[in-house]
Structures are given as C-alpha cells and as structure tokens.
Amino acid sequence: MSGLAKVVSHRLFWPIVMLLVLFAINLVAFPGFFTITVRDGQLFGSLIDILRNGAPTLIIAVGMTLVIATRGIDLSVGAVAAISGAVACSIILGSPEPGNLATVAVAVAVALLISLVLGVWNGFLVAVLGIQPIIATLILMTAGRGVAMLITEGQILTVNSPPFKFLGSGFWFGVPVAVVIAAVVFGIAALVTRRTALGMLIESVGINPEASRQAGLRARGLLFAVYTFCALCAAIAGLILTANTAAADANNTGLFIELDAILAVVIGGTSLAGGRYTLFGTLVGALVIQTLVTTVYTVGIPPIATMVFKAAVVTIVCLLQSPTTAASISGFRRRLAARAGKGLAAS
C-alpha cells in the first residue's frame, strides 16, 4: 500500500479533513477567524471560543470513550452534569458567604463526590446485575433530571460567586480555565490508559469479555472504574457549564450533551462495538462538533437548523469512515492501476 493510500485509509483522515473544511468555510465567511488577540493578558478569538465552548463536550467525551471501549454506553452524563451543577449552586446559595473560596471548594467537592456515587450506581447495574448499558444508564438519564429538579425545587438557581464563576468564564495565565481543565482531564486519561496496562485491559474487555474473564481479568472492577470515571467527567463538565452562566438550570444544563459526546467519540474513530479506541480521535471529534456549531452561526444558518446541519455533516464523516467506503475506494484504486498497467503494456 502506498504512502498516500495509508494516509487516506487512516481512521482520522476524514475527520481531520472535515475539520479543515469547516475552518476554511469560517475563514471565508469571517476573514478574521484565525485572529487571536490579547486583551488584559487574556486570549480572545474565534479559535479560543471553540476551545472554551467545546471543553465540556471534550471532557465528557473522554470518559465516554473509555465506556464505549468496553462495549458500553452512558446516556446519563447530561443528567449527571445537571445534578452536579444543581448541588454546587444549592450549597453556595445556602451559605452565608457565597463568594468565599472555601464555600465554593466544599460545593465542588460535594458535587464531585455525588457524581462518583452515581457512577458506581451505573457500574453496579452493568457489572453486577448484568443490565444492558443502554438500559442501565437510561434509568439515571430519566431520573437524574428529576433529581436535579428536586434539588433546585424547580427553580433556576442564580449564584453570585466570583470564585465559582471563575470555573466557567475565568482565565489562567491568559488561557480560559475551562480549556485548562479539559486539557488536564485529557492528559490524565491519556497518560493512565496509554502509559500503563489499563488501556490494554479496557480494550481486551471490549474485544472479548468472556476471553478476558477466562484469562483472569477482573472485568467487573474495570467496568466500575470506567463508569465512575465517566460520571466524574460529566460532573466536571456540569460545573463548568453551570459556572459559565452562574445559574443551575436542571432542565437545560447538559441537555443533549450525551449525544454530542457520543458523536465526538464515533467521529474520532472509536467503534461502538468496543475494543480499540483513540483519545486523540475523540479530541478531533469534539473539535469537529464545536466547530460545526460555530460554523452554523458564522455562515448565517438559522439556529433551529443546527441539529439537522450537524446530523448531515456527522453522517458524511461516518460514511467516509465506513469499511464499505474504504473497500470501494480501494477497489477503485486497483481498477485504475490495472487500467494504467494495460495502457503501458499496449504502448
């Protein structure tokens, strides 16, 4: 196989091409798209906005990647994000000093702790009771927003706490805090799964759970770990989303973000059938999703058509990545080579 054929057949080729195409469309519609300015020591620009707005999706997609690699799925991440934001805001509002850093630290810690419990619950349903992951997490997806509504008493909780708002709209050394948090989560996940045996164990469970069990691998504990980590990622994303608006909205916080996370994972080349996965591909997929949303607004497409436009682009990328398309391209290339060989022989 030639070098060019290897590049085209790589599972990240078409997602990267799509990302570059979206960049080009934005550049044509808005010539200053790649411009990054520094104001008061902080970075601003369209690319910075894409990174900041796409950070929650990337964080959840990182956890979702590991779940999908084990042949699972987690539909509850949006509800967990809503619960996390509701818990944090309710604690802050109930404190006599909502702007106190210690109060915010306690609120964040409690929200993350509750998310760990929710992740263990998902892991228990899947690993111990043997419930299909899509059903097990659908339970929390359905009940989770109800729990968030109970926490907020059906109200939108608005908080006035600079330390908390810093998580969503603050800057650290000129870079948005949300981007820094996403980079840390991504880096830790990549380091732990690719520099230790954990990544190989996750892949083995996803490829053949029964063979892994017979080989002595404790798949149950591994499933607990990935579902708990995914819930933790969802809670972190929920805190960022809530802090960005300084309000906990149980109905809308993290709404449909589970779909964006799954799309990011699939676009990045991780198979829903489990097994091999790629965190870098998930990063590319998350950038494609967020750039796509930005493109909708840049080119003037009505916001109500965002979901349709997103579905169309994602469908194109998935079709280009499909084995059938790859086989067709390979067959077409062989036919061209055969015709070229006949032409040379005739001459």
Rank of each mutant, 00 (worst) to 15 (best):
R335C: 04
I68C: 09
V159Q: 02
S46T: 10
V17A: 15
A105R: 01
Q214I: 09
V284P: 11
I60V: 15
V177H: 05
I59S: 03
A109Q: 07
N244V: 05
V128I: 12
L58T: 05
T242I: 04
A190E: 14
L344H: 05
T65M: 14
A107R: 00
C233I: 01
M64A: 15
A105C: 11
A261C: 14
A178W: 09
V117C: 11
V308I: 11
I50D: 04
L217Y: 00
A345D: 07
L116M: 13
Y227V: 00
V296N: 13
W14G: 08
I92S: 04
A246S: 15
L319M: 12
I301S: 01
I316V: 15
D260C: 14
T158E: 12
G199M: 05
A261Y: 11
R145V: 10
G216A: 05
P209G: 00
P15Q: 10
L232P: 00
L272C: 03
S76C: 08
L140G: 03
I236W: 03
I262M: 12
S90V: 14
V288F: 02
V180Y: 07
V192M: 07
G275T: 08
A261S: 15
L191I: 12
V104D: 03
S204V: 04
A86I: 00
Y277C: 03
E203H: 02
A127T: 06
T270R: 09
L272S: 04
C233N: 06
S84P: 03
A338K: 13
A305P: 00
L66M: 15
N251F: 13
L167D: 09
S9W: 08
L292N: 11
A345Q: 12
V293S: 15
L283T: 10
V308N: 00
I135H: 02
Y227T: 06
A24Q: 03
C89D: 05
G206T: 05
A243Y: 06
A273M: 11
G85F: 00
F33K: 00
A215Y: 08
V17I: 15
N100Q: 09
T65D: 12
G144W: 08
L138M: 13
A247L: 06
A86D: 04
G268V: 02
L241V: 06
S204T: 13
F23I: 12
E97W: 05
V308F: 07
T137V: 04
M149A: 14
T242E: 01
G341Q: 13
W14K: 01
I36F: 04
A69I: 11
L283D: 09
L239F: 11
K310L: 02
R11Q: 15
R145D: 10
A250S: 12
V106N: 02
K6C: 06
L239D: 00
F164K: 01
M149H: 11
G269R: 04
G187T: 03
P303L: 07
A338P: 05
L12C: 08
A234V: 07
S9M: 15
G269H: 08
P323I: 07
N53D: 14
T228R: 01
T295A: 12
V87N: 00
R194M: 07
A190V: 13
E203C: 11
V308Y: 00
V313E: 08
D40M: 09
L140S: 10
F23W: 14
V104K: 02
F332G: 15
V314F: 10
A286P: 02
L259E: 15
S161H: 01
S90L: 12
L320S: 08
L66V: 14
L129W: 10
A247T: 11
A55V: 02
G187D: 10
I48H: 03
T158G: 07
Q42F: 13
D249M: 02
